[in-house]
Amino acid sequence: MSILKPATIDAIKHHQSALLDGWIANLQQGGSLSDNRISRDDVSRQAKEFLALLVSASVAGDVADLARTEWSESRQFLETLSRSRAMQGFDSHHTAHFIFSLKRPLFDLLQKTYASDPMALSAELWAISELLDTLGMHTIRAFQKSREEVIRRQQEELLELSTPVVKLWDGVLALPMIGTLDSQRTQVVMESLLQRIVETGSDIAIIDITGVPTVDTLVAQHLLKTVTAIRLMGADCIISGIRPQIAQTIVHLGLDLGGIVTKANLADALALALKRSGLSVTRAE
């Protein structure tokens, strides 16, 4: 349990503007204001707001324990700040720098206030230092969390975006696969393709793997599973878009794609699908 001395809080209150100036100068030195992503006015407004919150919280609050309710406003403020910094594309260094650059002006102030009392000075320095460190850590944690949220959302969007099942012809479905195939994606792809086969009553499904960068044993196994599931449902499957390198890899790995119809490109696969459906394409005279 450590509470800041009233003298410290008074000193902060009285020298607020000097503190802010020192803080902003430090921020500028650290390069947080060097580009146009955030204006000087915004930063000084945020700094002022945070300093006010800090003072009001430390009057009542235990500076060693940020989990207490007195600090909830400060915590919320920092979380919002981290989130906005993350959105603006700042890195964690710049975000944490916002808190840590307050240290020097605060330490200078304390030194002046307790010039005659070294014992009190060291105690207050320790308390303030610990407080700012904890706040800084909290900021980084919030920053990390909001970045992770962004990544998770993008992953989900990618998953939805990259598995469209398109109808090429009456009774012919195509699935252009793009990106690396892992178990989770294969599952989603397989489910959506099988569902569409049932909905449309399509006889033939073409899986185009032109956009799949590499094929290893695992990917081949996933493909085989999908093909088997399609066959079990009573439809036929053609795999197209096997590039020369991928064909070489498949042969070198000794993978057995026996029983699966493969074509070099989607056009050939469509031609085969039309032929199997008893259709032919002729030039109009």
């Binding site: 088997t228 079990l232 449902m233």
Partner: peptide, 29 residues
């Protein structure tokens, strides 16, 4: 005929490929 997607996926995951069985989408086919 008429195997549901979920059933097909389950069978494949169980390793039962039913390789000798002929299949079709619906009764008509």
């Amino acid at each position: 005929v008429g195997m549901q997607p979920a059933v097909a996926i389950t069978l494949v995951e169980l390793g039962l490929t039913l390789s000798g069985v002929s299949t079709a989408l619906d009764v008509e086919r």
